[in-house]
Each structure stands twice: as structure tokens, then as C-alpha cells.
């Protein structure tokens, strides 16, 4: 019984520390970095993501992320993807997800918030905005340097 109580306390602390995390890196291949404010953090499996983070992959990089509403997003090589807005209420399933693919390729599977209210998830690109009504889709933004 004591062991059980101690474990609960430990989980409680972990929960507090991770409260700001909106997603978790589940797949990281090659060069994957997170730009958070002025800092660049190398991303590995298990790295937590927060609102306003930017995921940047190199020529050999790709990354897969699960978000707290069960939506999944992956980015391919040479990609820049920012989490402009993210909120999700686990009780009501209301939320808002605005991602921004500045460059590269993205695949995504929508989660609980889109099931609850269509169009709560949006992906911006430099030339258009996409509303997601579910469930699986892909987006490519050409590298502007090639134009």
C-alpha cells in the first residue's frame, strides 16, 4: 500500500512538470531540432513539445508527434513546422490547434478535438490555410530557396 501511495505522489510531480507539454516526440530520425524561444534543443524520442515550439528537420530528418487530444503529426526532411496555438480540454474535448508548415512536408491524423468540433484544427502554409474536418491528410510546401 505504501508503495502505491509513493508512486501516486511521484506521478503527481511528473504531471506538474509536464503540464505545459501539448505533445510528445514519438519518432525522431536524423537531424530534428526544436526551436523554443531563443534556444534550439535537439529533439529525441520523449522530448515534450509546447505551444509556440518550432520543429525543424534537416535533409535526413523526420519526426512524429502525438498531441494530447490524440492527433498525430509527422514532418519530413527539410521541414519547418510551428505549433502556433494549441489548447485541449480533456473533459469537454474542446480545443484549438493551429499549426504552421513554413516549409517541407507534413502528414497528420486528426484527434479528439476535431471529432468534437470540426475546423478546430488548422494548418497554415505561406499561401493558404487548411481547415481539418478529419481525419488523414498530407501537406507539402515547396522549399522557397528552390523557386
Amino acid at each position: 500500500m505504501r508503495k502505491f501511495l509513493i508512486l501516486l505522489v511521484a506521478l503527481g510531480f511528473a504531471g506538474t512538470a509536464l503540464a505545459a507539454d501539448v505533445g510528445l516526440v514519438k519518432v525522431a530520425k536524423g537531424s530534428v531540432q526544436i526551436q523554443r524561444g531563443a534556444n534550439k534543443i535537439p529533439a529525441t524520442v520523449g522530448t515534450g513539445l509546447q505551444q509556440a515550439d518550432v520543429v525543424i528537420t534537416g535533409a535526413d530528418g523526420s519526426a512524429g508527434i502525438t498531441f494530447t487530444d490524440n492527433s498525430l503529426v509527422s514532418v519530413g526532411p527539410n521541414s519547418v513546422f510551428s505549433i502556433d496555438k494549441y489548447s485541449f480540454d480533456t473533459t469537454t474535448h474542446a480545443g484549438e490547434f493551429e499549426g504552421n508548415l513554413k516549409q517541407g512536408r507534413l502528414a497528420a491524423v486528426s484527434g479528439k478535438m476535431v471529432k468534437q468540433s470540426p475546423d478546430s484544427m488548422k494548418i497554415r502554409t505561406p499561401s493558404a490555410i487548411m481547415g481539418v474536418r478529419g481525419t488523414e491528410f498530407v501537406v507539402q510546401v515547396d522549399d522557397t530557396k528552390k523557386n
Binding site: 514519438k26 519518432v27 512524429g64 502525438t66 509527422s74 514532418v75 519530413g76 507534413l106 502528414a107 507539402q140
Partner: peptide, 11 residues
């Protein structure tokens, strides 16, 4: 076009 990125989607 998207094989690599779709492969990176988590389970």
C-alpha cells in the same frame, strides 16, 4: 512525395 513523412507518423 509523402512516403517518408507518412512513415514517421506515430502508431
Amino acid at each position: 512525395t509523402f512516403g517518408t513523412v507518412m512513415d514517421a507518423l506515430p502508431g
